[in-house]
Amino acid sequence: MAGILDTVDQRTQLVGENRLELLMFRLGGRQLFAINVFKVQEVLQLPKLTLMPHRHPHVCGVVNLRGKTLPVIDLSQAIGMRPLVPGPDSTIIVTEYNRSVQAFLVSGVDRIVNMNWEAILPPPASAGRHHYLTAISKVEEQLVEIIDVEKVLAEIVPYSAKVSREKLDDPILERARGREVLLVDDSSVALSQLRETLSQLGIKMHVASDGLKALNLLKGWADTGEDITDKLLMIFTDAEMPEMDGYRLTTEVRNDPRLRDLYVVLHTSLSGSFNESMVKKVGCDNFLSKFQPDKLVDVVRQRLLRDEEPA
C-alpha cells in the first residue's frame, strides 16, 4: 500500500475529464467508505501514538511523522459510529486539505478506484452518519460512502468566517453591495463559510450543490435572455463535486459563448500547488484555498477592480 500514491502525475491527467480516484477503506465493518486521492498524502501503519491532555474526544492522540507532529482522528467516532481501538496493527490515512495535515485512524484500506464524477451521487437526506457524507457511489455493486472530511475537521478545529475590519473598511468593496454571485459546492460547511463571509459585503448569493446543477442554472438564465456577465459578479466553485466537478464546469462555461466571460474562482480544499497549475489548464480566473475570509474578500476586490481595466 505504501506505493499506492506514487503516480500523482498520471492522476493529474484526470483533471478536466470529469474523473476522479477514490481511496476506499473500512471503519470496523463491511461498509466501504472513500476519500478523494488528491487529499491523501500516504497510507501507513500507525506509528507510536502519544496521548495528549484535554484533546478533542475524536482525537486519539498525536504521532511524529518525519519530524512533524500530526493529530490522529478516529474517523469512525467522528462520523457517529463506534470508536476504533488504536493498536500496533492499525492503519492511518495521512491527509492534506484546507491548508492542514492530519491523520485518520481506519480499520483497513481496500484499494484505489478510478471513477467518473457522473457515477458519484449526492447522499440520501437522512440522519445518522449520512450527515457526514458528501456523496455516494457503487463499486462492483457495493455501496461506497464518500465522507465529508471538511465537515469532520471543521467540527474539531472550528473555522472563522469573520472578515477583518481593515478589509471591510476598503471603499472599493462598497461596489460589491447588491451584486450577485453563484456559489457551487457540495459541502454544507464550505457553503456556510462562503455565505457568512460574503454576507458581510452585502452580496446576494445563488447556490448550487454540484457543477451540473450550476451549469443548468446558468444556461436557464441565459435561455431567458439574461446577460449572465451583467447578472453575476463571479462564480465560486469547488473542485470535487458529484455528477460534475468544478474543472469540467469551468470548461463548459468557457465553451458557451453566453457564459464564457464569467469570472470563475476555484474555491477548494485541495493543495494549492496542484490547483494553481490546473486553474490555467481549465481556464479559471483565480484560485483560493477554503476558509480564508480575508483572502476571499481580496479575490472579490480583484474582480471589482477588473471592471476598471480598459477593454
Rank of each mutant, 00 (worst) to 15 (best):
S273F: 13
F33S: 10
D298I: 01
G178F: 12
L75H: 08
D245G: 03
Q45F: 03
T7P: 00
K48Q: 14
I4C: 07
H206S: 15
E226Y: 10
E17R: 10
R260S: 11
Q200L: 07
V163C: 10
R177H: 14
Q302H: 13
L70F: 15
L153W: 02
I136D: 10
L266H: 00
L288M: 07
A103G: 05
N275D: 01
V299R: 05
G29A: 15
M115R: 12
N275A: 08
E145V: 02
L14R: 09
L75S: 06
V144C: 02
H267P: 02
V43S: 01
A78P: 06
P122A: 09
P242G: 09
A239C: 12
V265R: 00
G80W: 04
F38M: 06
A214Q: 13
G108T: 04
D210E: 13
L232Y: 12
A78F: 10
A176L: 03
I235W: 02
G283D: 04
S107T: 15
S271L: 03
Q292L: 10
D256S: 11
L183G: 06
I147W: 12
R179L: 13
T224E: 14
S273Y: 08
F104Y: 15
W117F: 13
V8D: 11
Q31F: 00
E174M: 05
E276D: 12
K219Q: 15
V297H: 09
D230W: 03
M24R: 13
D238A: 05
F25P: 00
S289D: 05
H131C: 04
F104I: 01
W221G: 07
L5C: 10
G128K: 10
P71Y: 02
P171A: 05
T268C: 04
L44D: 01
E42P: 04
L105C: 09
L270V: 03
G246V: 01
L51F: 01
A161G: 12
D185I: 13
T134F: 01
L105G: 08
G272M: 10
L121S: 14
P57T: 09
D294S: 05
D89K: 14
F274S: 00
